[in-house]
Design a binder for these strands. Structure first.
Lengths: 179, 179
DNA sequence: TATTGTTATACTCTATAACTATA
DNA sequence: TATAGTTATAGAGTATAACAATA
């Protein structure tokens, strides 16, 4: 079937045999990795969007919802929905800040801490699965290249762009399936 | 912009110690690439989901909706919606198959062909933007590593997993004894 | 009866805006 | 008046299932 070669090789005449660009490969493999990760964590009862929020609260307990919204790049009401879900599942709890009672300080519950630990285990398995095709040297190489791109593109470390609220273009409805 | 602040920088030793996994980086950079691509093509009046379908019809004119649904991994009704949109935009047309009148043969219009050509230009610019941090050798290296992963993971060349209908459990059925 | 495509419908996700309670 | 959070609402995206036309 398609002869996949490095870009920069011979410019394919037939679009059928034209090698996929690196950017497409990134999107394709990245979406696959996301989907597989989502599958894995579903057994913990959480969705991908929960994970980043949980980790932020774990790293910095007592954070306000506002600050999370800002760092994740979503509107506050979205954080409400996410925290609602996590609270319902018993992984997180809201505590009124005594100094400013408008503020909700977020903390992991014992169960939440446990889930975070489980998540680390799943994360390792996930990592192994996705990189199964590569040896250690290649993995290091890949990580280095990706980090260079991430830095140059101005991505926030640890924050998945899926959180970012899509700027609604004037004309076309936008959108984007998987990612 | 080169060095992004780590959330909880000074205090969050835990997240500092352990660099993001390669799988996460893949998901992050991949989602970013997808989002930027979506932004770019929006000026052509199409969304990412349109692109794969357009390309398939371009490569193999006269295809049935059924065959597209199968290859993309979506339900037929989804193809109806996509083709509806593309037909409304004047990029594609349905022609009744004379032999089997149940069948709709899909073809690009002149405008559709033009848009495909524009898309190739945008694609090159996109590629250059995403890989701006890398030199030619590194780009080749990256493509090679990604192709190895894609092949080992069984991804269909040229098909973005975002199409695939994934059993998305969404917000995990309540009642899940999270305690 | 089986197959291609379509319509009707429902459900999830997520942003906007109005609202509450503090300050 | 300003801020943290919440609720109400609306729109896009996408699957399921019933349906129509054709074979």
């Amino acid at each position: 079937m398609t002869t996949q070669r490095q870009p920069g090789g011979e410019a394919g005449s037939a679009s059928r045999l034209r090698p996929r660009g690196t950017a497409f490969l990134l999107a394709q493999v990245g979406a696959h990795a996301s989907a597989r990760f989502a599958e894995r964590i579903s057994e913990l009862g959480v969705v991908p969007a929960d994970v980043g929020l949980l980790r932020m609260v774990a790293v910095q307990p007592g954070r306000s919802q506002q600050s999370l919204a800002e760092e994740l790049g979503v509107v506050p009401s979205r954080v409400v929905a996410l925290v609602d879900g996590l609270e319902r599942k018993g992984l997180i709890e809201r505590r009124r800040n005594v100094r400013d009672r408008r503020n909700h300080a977020l903390h992991l519950t014992a169960e939440g801490t446990h889930v975070m630990s489980e998540m680390r285990t799943l994360g390792s398995a996930h990592e192994a699965e996705i990189c199964a095709a590569l040896d250690d040297t290649q993995r290091a190489q890949l990580a280095e290249l990706l980090e260079a791109i991430a830095a140059q593109q101005g991505l926030t470390p640890g924050v998945h762009p899926g959180y970012r609220q899509s700027p609604q273009p004037a004309e076309e409805p936008h959108g984007r399936p998987g990612s």
